[in-house]
Amino acid sequence: MIDRAYCVLMARYNAWQNRQLFELLKPLHLAELTRDRGAFFGSILGTLNHLLWGDLLWMVRLDGGERPAGGIGDSTTLHPTLGAWDAARFRADGRIMAWADRLNAVDLTGDLSWYSGALGRHVTKPIAQCIVHMFNHQTHHRGQVHAMMTAAGLKGAVSDLVFMSEDA
């Protein structure tokens, strides 16, 4: 279904997108970043926090480590400022890229099992499907941020994968 090259490409894409978002959002005041814009996770910062929380949770399942605090309901408040989010995001993106770089074909086979707080039960799915979901989840929520930015009159990030430079 997927291979190491796919994971490396998507990890690079994720980091490139997050760097662009931070640069475009830096000029906004905290009140604008946290203003409820009617999105599922409320605000721009709330959505970015949820996305980071989700990435951290998936990485715990994929490479171990400490689970992020709280559940989905708490995920929007993971970091109170864009600067704090950016520092944590930078570390998480590095972790995702390092994980992808270390993958072997065997790491992408078999099942992944975990307890889902959202469903309230244990879940088992093919690991490749879980990895695709993680990267799709990132794109989905960045799309929501892009829509909020556009509605606020801001320039959105270039999000087309085919326009990512080789050094991104």
Score class of each variant (00 low, 15 high):
residue 51 L to W: 00
residue 70 G to K: 11
residue 50 H to N: 02
residue 50 H to G: 00
residue 59 M to V: 14
residue 37 R to L: 06
residue 31 A to C: 14
residue 50 H to P: 00
residue 24 L to G: 03
residue 25 L to S: 09
residue 48 L to M: 06
residue 76 T to A: 14
residue 44 I to E: 00
residue 49 N to W: 04
residue 59 M to D: 12
residue 79 H to A: 14
residue 51 L to P: 04
residue 66 E to D: 10
residue 69 A to K: 12
residue 71 G to H: 05
residue 43 S to P: 11
residue 75 S to H: 01
residue 65 G to F: 11
residue 17 Q to P: 09
residue 20 Q to Y: 06
residue 17 Q to L: 14
residue 70 G to S: 11
residue 42 G to P: 02
residue 39 A to S: 11
residue 76 T to P: 09
residue 37 R to V: 05
residue 52 L to R: 00
residue 37 R to K: 08
residue 54 G to Y: 09
residue 42 G to D: 02
residue 42 G to R: 01
residue 56 L to Y: 08
residue 18 N to H: 06
residue 39 A to V: 11
residue 43 S to M: 08
residue 25 L to N: 02
residue 34 T to V: 03
residue 67 R to M: 13
residue 75 S to A: 08
residue 59 M to F: 12
residue 39 A to K: 04
residue 79 H to D: 05
residue 54 G to H: 09
residue 47 T to M: 09
residue 67 R to I: 15
residue 32 E to G: 09
residue 48 L to F: 02
residue 63 D to V: 15
residue 69 A to P: 12
residue 51 L to D: 03
residue 37 R to C: 03
residue 72 I to K: 08
residue 45 L to H: 03
residue 61 R to G: 13
residue 59 M to C: 15
residue 39 A to W: 00
residue 23 E to Y: 09
residue 58 W to G: 08
residue 78 L to R: 01
residue 80 P to T: 14
residue 64 G to F: 15
residue 74 D to H: 01
residue 78 L to Q: 07
residue 55 D to P: 06
residue 49 N to P: 12
residue 45 L to N: 04
residue 49 N to E: 04
residue 55 D to F: 07
residue 47 T to Q: 07
residue 65 G to C: 12
residue 72 I to F: 07
residue 44 I to T: 02
residue 32 E to I: 04
residue 36 D to H: 05
residue 32 E to K: 04
residue 48 L to R: 02
residue 33 L to H: 02
residue 38 G to C: 10
residue 43 S to E: 03
residue 17 Q to K: 08
residue 44 I to Y: 00
residue 27 P to Y: 09
residue 23 E to N: 07
residue 18 N to T: 05
residue 64 G to C: 15
residue 69 A to M: 12
residue 57 L to F: 09
residue 76 T to E: 10
residue 65 G to M: 10
residue 31 A to K: 07
residue 64 G to P: 13
residue 26 K to G: 10
residue 43 S to K: 06
residue 34 T to L: 00
residue 22 F to R: 10
residue 25 L to H: 01
residue 31 A to Y: 11
residue 48 L to S: 03
residue 28 L to M: 08
residue 43 S to D: 06
